[in-house]
Structure formats: C-alpha cells, structure tokens
C-alpha cells in the first residue's frame, strides 16, 4: 500500500479507474496505518464531493436488486450520467470469506465505461460497513460520478445504516403469492422515500398492481419523514426495462422539492452530524475497553454485579470514573 496520500488523491481526481479502485481498497482496510492515510485522502477530497445524487437501494433476496440496478444504471448512463454502484455483500460469519457475485447480474453495466461497480464484503461489523461505504461514496463523488447507488441486502440493520447516508432510499419489493406486508419491516417503511414493486411483467402484472395497493395502504399508517414528500409506490419491470424512467423522475422531483425546502441540505448536515457522534461514541467505547485499568478491574466488578453484591449504577459510575481520572491527570 502506498504511503503518500497525494498518490491516491491525484489518481481519484483524474478519474483513473485503477487509482479509484485502490483508494477504495485503502478506505476499506482494517489496518490503523492505512486508515490514517485514508483520513488524509478523504479530507483532501472533501471539497470535490457532495454534488452527486446519493441513492440507497434495499430489498429482500430475490427482489431483483441487481437486475434493477443493471437496467436502471444503464438507463442513467444513456442520459449521460456517470454511475457508481457500491454493493455490500454479506461475509460468512464462520470463515469470514464472502462471495461477491453482483457483477454476474450486472453484465452490461459492468462493461459500461460510464459506470463503476464495486462489490464489498460486509466484513462482519455494521460500523465497518457504515464507515467504508460512506467514505467510498465520497471517493466516487470526487472521481466525478454524479449518481451513487448503494445496494444492500435487506437483512439485520443494514438498511437503516444505508438510509442514514443517502439522499433517497428506495425499497425494492416483489409481488409474491399473498400477504405482501409480511416481508417488510416497519422500520424500513419509515425510512423509505419510495417503494418500487419489481417484476411487474408477464403473468405477474396483476399481482404487482395488488401489491402496490397494499403498500400504499401500509404507507398511510406511517408518518412521513418530511411534510413535503409522501413516499410513492411504483411498479416496474427491470427485466423488460419498463417503469425505470418513472423511478428516475421521482428521484429527481424528490431532489428538487427537498432542495427548495432546504431539507436536503439539512438532511446531509444531520447525517454528517450523527455520523460524527457515532464515531465519537465508537471512539469512546474503544478507549474504554482498551483502558488497562478497566480491563483489569472489569472481571471483578462484573462478577460482583452478577452476584448482586454491587448495584449496576454504582459499577457503571466507578468504571466511567476510571476514564475520568485519566482526564484529570
């Protein structure tokens, strides 16, 4: 790994694919020394970021996310947009390894010079995904991509993590056999800016229309996050490339409305702020757990709390006070 941040910065700003790819690898590295360089790089690239449309896409496995992005992304490139796709794939909890197969489902987009697709292993921790993806997004913006699509599998908390770093969060669904709402979490409905029912093709069209109705009803029960935007439900067929332009129009009108009302800027500020606080908490936590004295005292304190010999509140006070002592010195 190169030590000089300017090596990466210049490469990214030149939109050199090789350098862009290597910078993302740097950002994703778990080594503290790499993260140190990455911080410099991101900081220098920051003035060149912020102009892209940031789009998050989630959906249950089988909803056709990759096929949707393949068709949607290709459509956007024909409109002259430069599209970066960041796909997060789950790592195995047992081996730590992962299978990154997204590009097999994005065959055309993968060879399209207007597009850049980078699949990344989730690598276990959610904080890890959040940090990496957020920074990768900035790197891609600095390289000149004006639409950034972040794709995630709808499992665990990954959707809300992704929703907290994008401008527009799109939930992809398919029409199934019966109760559509079973498959969707309330938390996801709350952060969705639009629901798109995919696979509205062939003998599935009527089912898709029915599902659309059901989601509309469900969305009425959720308080929208903005008074100016009621999340719409749409149908599309990524396979037959139908309804994709409607999705893009919706994303654009969302951007227009949110920009006019000042909410977009506010949203991004809030995101940056909550990201800072997340990092502060993470840093404090790391500091706490790595503290030599705490590590020494913790087992005994834990044991006393478990045995009921010490009140949890007092234990917490004592532990935090140890950190406080450091500060006084």
């Amino acid at each position: 790994m190169h030590k000089d941040p300017s090596y990466y910065i210049q490469g990214v700003l030149d939109n050199n694919r090789l350098m862009l790819a290597r910078t993302i690898t740097l950002v994703e590295s778990i080594l503290p020394s790499h993260q140190e360089i990455a911080k410099h790089v991101i900081n220098e690239l920051l003035p060149y970021t912020g102009k892209a449309v940031r789009l998050g896409i989630t959906g249950v496995p089988g909803a056709g996310k990759s096929t949707f992005i393949e068709s949607f992304g290709t459509t956007l490139t024909t409109l002259g947009h430069k599209v970066a796709v960041l796909a997060i794939d789950p790592s195995s909890t047992r081996s730590g390894g992962s299978i990154l197969g997204d590009k097999t489902r994005m065959e055309r987009l993968a060879v399209n010079d207007m597009a850049f697709i980078r699949p990344s292993p989730s690598g276990g921790s959610l904080g890890g995904v959040a940090r990496k993806t957020r920074e990768t997004m900035l790197v891609c913006e600095a390289a000149g991509f004006d639409v950034i699509i972040v794709e995630t599998v709808g499992v665990g908390q990954s959707e809300t993590t992704v929703a907290s770093m994008v401008d527009f969060f799109l939930v992809l669904q398919i029409a199934g056999a019966g109760d559509e709402l079973q498959g969707i979490k309330k938390g996801v409905l709350e952060v969705a800016d639009a629901i798109v029912v995919n696979k509205a093709d062939g003998d599935n069209i009527n089912r898709a229309k029915l599902a659309k109705k059901q989601y509309e009803t469900a969305l009425h029960l959720v308080t929208p996050s903005s008074p100016n935007w009621a999340p719409p439900v749409m149908t599309c067929s990524a396979l037959e490339e139908k309804g994709l332009m409607d999705v893009w129009t919706t994303v654009n009108s969302h951007k227009k409305i949110m920009t006019a009302s000042g909410e977009l800027e506010k949203k991004r500020q809030d995101q940056a702020m909550s990201w800072m606080w997340f990092l502060v908490n993470e840093g404090l936590e790391r500091w706490f757990y790595q503290h030599a004295e705490i590590q020494k005292l913790l087992p005994n304190i834990k044991k006393r709390v478990e045995e009921g010999k010490m009140a949890p509140t007092r234990a917490a006070d004592e532990l935090v006070a140890i950190l406080g002592k450091d500060l006084l010195l």
């Binding site: 790592s91 047992r94 081996s95 390894g97 065959e107």
Partner: peptide, 11 residues
C-alpha cells in the same frame, strides 16, 4: 469463500 477468501465471480 469457505476458506476465508473474498471471492469475486465474473459474468
């Protein structure tokens, strides 16, 4: 992947 590699598959 079972051995702990990150494996990309091409189309």
């Amino acid at each position: 992947a079972d051995l702990g590699f990150d494996v990309d598959i091409s189309p």
